[in-house]
Simulated scan of single mutants.
Amino acid sequence: MPTHHATHSSMTFDRDITDLARALVGARLVVRGTGGTILETEAYGRDDPASHSFRGRTARNAAMFGPPGTVYVYLSYGLHLCLNVVGRPGEAVLIRALCPEIGTPTMALRRGLPETSPLLAAGPGRIGQALGLSLLDSGKPFDGGEFHLTPAGQEPDLLTGPRIGITRAADLPWRFGLAGARGLSRPFP
C-alpha cells in the first residue's frame, strides 16, 4: 500500500512550489477514471499573500497543511470547484487546464459539451466539473487510488507568466503552461 508522503508514481511533491508547478505541466492526471495531460498550473506559496494559506490554517484550507501530495479542492465564487496539488505545508499548485484524454464521454456529459470542445477542461472550474470533483475530495491523497498523477516522460517546453484572477502578488511569474498547447485557460502574454 503506498504511503501518503513525498513520492507517488515517482512524482515528488515535497519541493519548491514553483518547481512542483513546472513538474505538473505535462503530467497525467486521472480522477476516478477521467482525466488527461495537465496543460497549465499556478503556484501558491506559504508566504504568498494570494494564497489561501497566507493567514494560517482554517477549516476551508486545512488540506493545504496536509502531507505533500494531498488533494485540495475549494469552491471559487460559490460556483466552481478547483483542484490543487499540495506541496509543502501551506503550499499548493492550482491545476488550470487539462487536455481531456481519459473518460472523455463522461467529462463531456458532466460539462454538457461535445467531447471535442476546446472548453471541456480549459480553466480550473471547468476541470472541477469535468472530473466530477466534490469538496469531500479535499484531503484525499494523490496515491494512485481515486487520484493519480504520473510524471511527464520528459521536461516539456514551458510558457511562464503572471497568475490570473488575483489582486495580491499578481506580478509573480508563477503560472506555467505547455508551449503550443490548445486548451489553455487563457493565452500567455
Rank of each mutant, 00 (worst) to 15 (best):
P189C: 08
R28I: 05
A59R: 15
A152P: 05
R175I: 08
H5I: 04
F13E: 01
E146F: 08
G78K: 07
I95W: 11
L39V: 09
P173G: 08
L131C: 02
A62M: 05
R28C: 03
G69P: 01
D157Y: 04
M107K: 05
L120V: 11
R96G: 03
I95A: 05
C82V: 09
E101K: 03
L75S: 13
G161Y: 12
T41D: 08
G56S: 14
T58G: 10
Y44M: 06
H4D: 11
E42C: 08
L135G: 10
L39G: 04
D19P: 02
I166W: 05
G177P: 09
P114N: 13
S134F: 07
E91A: 09
F176T: 02
S10L: 13
A179N: 10
S134V: 10
P118T: 12
R57H: 08
A181F: 03
P68A: 13
D143T: 06
E91M: 09
G125S: 06
D143Y: 03
Y77I: 06
V93Q: 07
A23V: 03
Y74W: 13
K140D: 12
Y44A: 01
G139V: 09
A152Y: 04
L94M: 04
I164F: 05
L79Q: 13
I127K: 00
H52R: 15
M11A: 03
I38T: 00
L184A: 03
L136M: 11
R182E: 14
R55M: 11
T116I: 02
G103M: 10
R186C: 02
W174H: 12
R163G: 04
L81D: 02
A21K: 02
T70W: 04
I164P: 00
M107C: 03
R111Q: 02
T18C: 13
P68S: 11
P49R: 05
Y74I: 01
H8C: 11
P49K: 08
T12M: 06
G112F: 06
A121W: 02
P2K: 07
E101L: 07
R55E: 12
